[in-house]
Amino acid sequence: MRREFHWFPAAVTGAMLVYSLLPIVTFTLFSFNPSPFYAFPLTGFTTDWYVKLLADGRIGDSLVASVTIAASVMVAATVIGTMFAFFVVRAAVPFKRVLAGLGFLPLVVPVLVLAAGLQVTFVEIGLPLGFGTVILGHVIYATPFVTLMVMAPLYRYNPALDAAARDLGAGPFTTLRLVTLPILWPGIRSGALLAFLLSFNEWAIAFFTGRGVNSLPMLVYSLQRNGLPPTVLAYAALSTAVVAIAALAVLPLVTRLLRGSK
């Protein structure tokens, strides 16, 4: 089809990129600045903060803890959340609206309160606090987001396709695997990514429902109380760079997926 240049949306997209990158560029600059205070003009160039960061074992341990938790949460929340999206969009059961509404309630409770409530519940029913409870808590927190991401494509999904697949002799699981899930894939993928990131950055639930779990946000939160030292900025810059490079490596894959979903 014909594509034309639209100056207004193009300008907004450009501005959006500047907006998105401005803080990242800023803290990256500060992470190479000898002064521990976040002000311009910069006072020089140093890699001291990075050296200090890599010498401090706590950040490495916390990173491992956070990735472990976030990956588990991603898997569980994506499966459960996708299933629930089917329930919300497709199910024909009594009181579905009420049940669907209940399913989204965790979205409207402030996370801190959710965290405290979860801790009390876990302790009351005798679940030992630890990695497992943090993961469980994060699944409760992240699943509604996954459901929302999957619901959008599911609403536009044409059920006639299922019927067509059935007519062609596909069983329910074959239909799901070969027809339904591939079509929903962009939504599921975004949901999974979101679940990972939500868990990766979450502090309150990890603090309240974890025991002996020092996830990265917990460490950062605690460090921040004495001024978010530039080592944390160095960490942020470093991890962003690592992820950006990783993203470049998988970009062709994403591109293919995007083409496929057109």
Binding site: L22, I24, N201, V232, T240, L251, L258
Partner: peptide, 29 residues
């Protein structure tokens, strides 16, 4: 599609930075 993916990825990268760092960065701006 490559440009689309790249722009979305750049925006998604901001999510990888903890909310605290993201927020404090605005002080520097």
């Amino acid at each position: 599609a490559r440009v689309q993916a790249a722009v979305l990825a750049l925006v998604a990268v901001t999510f990888l930075v903890g909310p605290l760092v993201r927020t404090v960065a605005w002080r520097g701006i």
